[in-house]
């Protein structure tokens, strides 16, 4: 176990470094922030001066060297746009995203596992058909539709909830609900699918036929076997959410990392792009280690 953790820590660190290198060089292929930062009428001297101040005139490898030197001292550089340390900008935003992702994913996991297994228990039954139908619509409807219609109905029409923003508990309800729908539909389908396979697999049938275990035990046993792909998909969805929920954050005015990242990419604010990728990557790597540990816990035959 400790050996596994140590090995994973090292290989994750290597992945992180590779990621930084890739992002650093690739993002700089997308243009120069000078043109975007200065007004279009700015003089050539002003442009030159700006590049000088922000070190954009140096060859790429020199810029990279400076960046890495700062990085080992945990200095992530300054945001050009915001004139503040990039890490500070990113952590502020990441805290919001983390809360949003955690609340949503906990809810989704519970709901999808319970309803998905129930659907699998009677394949083709009424409950199965209804659950499948609605989860599929949820998984394939454009999220901004749902978001805007929800605002129009619940905030403008009934006046029950605030349209957007942060502050009270009420502000969280709409964004979390909208964010909930797509992963819920997807995970429910995966739970249902792998539960069907697990329930029909030979050993569950044998156990059933022998009558050694009550129904509930069989159910739990099957669920345990069905969990491997489910956990993977949950992890994938959670990773997507840690990368930010751009649409939900944009519409509801949530100051999360998704909106920050897209804004920074479009503005070529490289320090913020890199810092946010590193912060989210760190969280994702951590989560993936937990997921692998969960595989092992669920299925003792899996060893690392």
């Amino acid at each position: 176990m400790q050996k596994f953790l140590a090995r994973r820590a090292v290989s994750s660190a290597i992945s992180l470094v590779l990621l930084v290198i890739a992002v650093f060089f690739l993002s700089r292929l997308t243009g120069d922030p000078t043109d975007l930062y200065l007004p279009v009428d700015a003089s050539a001297e002003a442009r030159e001066n700006f590049r000088q101040i922000h070190g954009l005139n140096d060859p790429l490898y020199v810029q990279f060297g400076h960046y890495m030197l700062d990085l080992v001292q945990l200095d992530f550089g300054d945001s050009i746009r915001r004139a503040r340390p990039a890490l500070e900008v990113v952590t502020e935003a990441f805290v919001w995203t983390l809360q949003l992702a955690a609340i949503t994913m906990v809810g989704v996991t519970f709901a999808a596992i319970v309803l998905g297994s129930l659907a699998a228990f009677r394949v083709g039954g009424l409950f199965d058909r209804v659950a499948t139908f609605f989860s599929l619509i949820g998984a394939s409807a454009p999220d901004f539709w749902i978001a805007i219609v929800a605002i129009v109905v619940f905030a403008v029409g009934f006046g029950w909830l605030p349209t957007s923003g942060t502050g009270t508990v009420w502000h969280w309800i709409l964004p979390v609900s909208v964010l909930f729908i797509r992963p819920f539909g997807l995970i429910l389908q995966v739970v249902r699918g792998s539960m069907i396979t697990a329930l029909s697999s030979a050993y569950v049938k044998t156990a059933r036929a022998k009558g050694v275990a009550p129904r509930a035990t069989i159910f739990v046993h099957a669920l345990r076997n069905a969990m491997l792909p489910v956990i993977t998909v949950i992890g994938d969805q959670a990773a997507g959410m840690l990368n930010g929920a751009v649409v939900v954050e944009t519409i509801f005015g949530f100051p999360g990392v998704g909106k920050l990242m897209i804004d920074s990419i479009l503005q070529r604010d490289f320090a913020v792009v890199l810092a946010s990728i590193m912060v989210t990557a760190f969280a994702i790597f951590l989560m993936n280690i937990l997921i692998d540990l969960a595989y092992g816990a669920l299925d003792p035959r899996i060893r690392y």
Binding site: S12, I14, S15, V23, M261, I262, I277, A281, I284, N288
Partner: peptide, 13 residues
């Protein structure tokens, strides 16, 4: 680990 890298590389970027 390759999957980790791709997963954390934002699709928008």
């Amino acid at each position: 680990r390759l999957a980790d890298v791709i997963m954390s590389f934002p699709s928008l970027l």
